[in-house]
């Protein structure tokens, strides 16, 4: 027999934050998302949680399950023991129960200008050519589903609400390394700040929790290297023109 202990809170309905315990039916192979639905459908229709694809690609259902940030849809109930505690993502305002306000998360994402700023006008009636080797440089960087698990797990994001966060920095590297992009300097200037890459303490939480096995920590390390190069170059450039 398993129990879900779920964080409940409804500021609009006067429900103070508390945990509520629900007994689950003995069903093999149930996922946490299916368990949440079972509760909504049979025990408590006021339970609020996000979901959509149920196949780990839409990024809706990241929550904190027994101490780890995971996608509810791809987490099995069985191996988690008898009592499973579920909380919403942290560092983000709570709307209700497991639903958090993702606005700060997407605001950070928007800061790095998350769109291709091409080097040159596109060739007529042709694609930008990109060699297989160059395309490999953005492998996995393009796979982020923006679920927020990394952001929730990051202690730096807790302490600094202006920190760009692992998701936005991974996305920044995705464009910095794209051979079609021409705004490397502009983006490095955005991330090479005290609220950008230099705020990261290389704690590896984001890498550990990523449900898509991506490596934001590594991406940030790469951006740090590139940022140092960029900073030196701009200082050097400044010194020369001043001299």
């Amino acid at each position: 027999m398993a129990y879900l202990k779920i964080f409940r809170y409804d500021p609009s309905g006067g429900v103070e934050p508390h945990f509520k315990r629900y007994e689950l039916p003995p069903e093999k192979g149930m996922t946490i998302l299916e368990a949440l639905f079972w509760i909504l459908e049979n025990k408590d229709p006021s339970l609020a949680f996000r979901c959509s694809c149920r196949e780990a690609v839409c990024g809706s259902c990241a929550v904190h399950i027994n101490g780890e940030y995971r996608l509810a849809c791809k987490t099995q109930v069985d191996p988690l023991g008898e009592e499973i505690t579920i909380r919403p993502l942290t560092h983000l305002p709570i709307f209700k129960d497991l639903v958090v306000d993702m606005k700060p998360f997407f605001d950070q994402y928007e800061k790095i200008k998350p769109y291709l700023m091409p080097k040159e006008e596109p060739p007529e009636s042709k694609e930008y050519f990109q060699s297989v080797k160059d395309r490999k440089k953005i492998d996995s960087l393009v796979d982020c589903i923006l679920c927020g698990a990394c952001y929730g797990s990051c202690p730096v994001a807790m302490g600094d609400p202006d920190y760009l966060g692992p998701h936005a920095l991974l996305k920044a590297l995705r464009f910095v390394q794209d051979t079609r992009d021409g705004a490397k300097t502009e983006r490095l200037a955005i991330v090479a700040t005290e609220h950008g890459v230099f705020r990261c303490h290389t704690i590896f939480n984001c890498q550990k929790v990523c449900p898509k096995d991506l490596d934001p920590t590594g991406a940030i390390a790469k951006l740090k290297m590139k940022s140092i190069g960029f900073k030196l170059k701009s200082m050097f450039g400044f010194a020369r023109s001043a001299g």
Binding site: D10, S12, G13, S46, A48, F49, V99
Partner: peptide
């Protein structure tokens, strides 16, 4: 009858 985030 909950108001906000009524998924039911």
């Amino acid at each position: 009858n909950c108001k906000a985030w009524n998924f039911d």
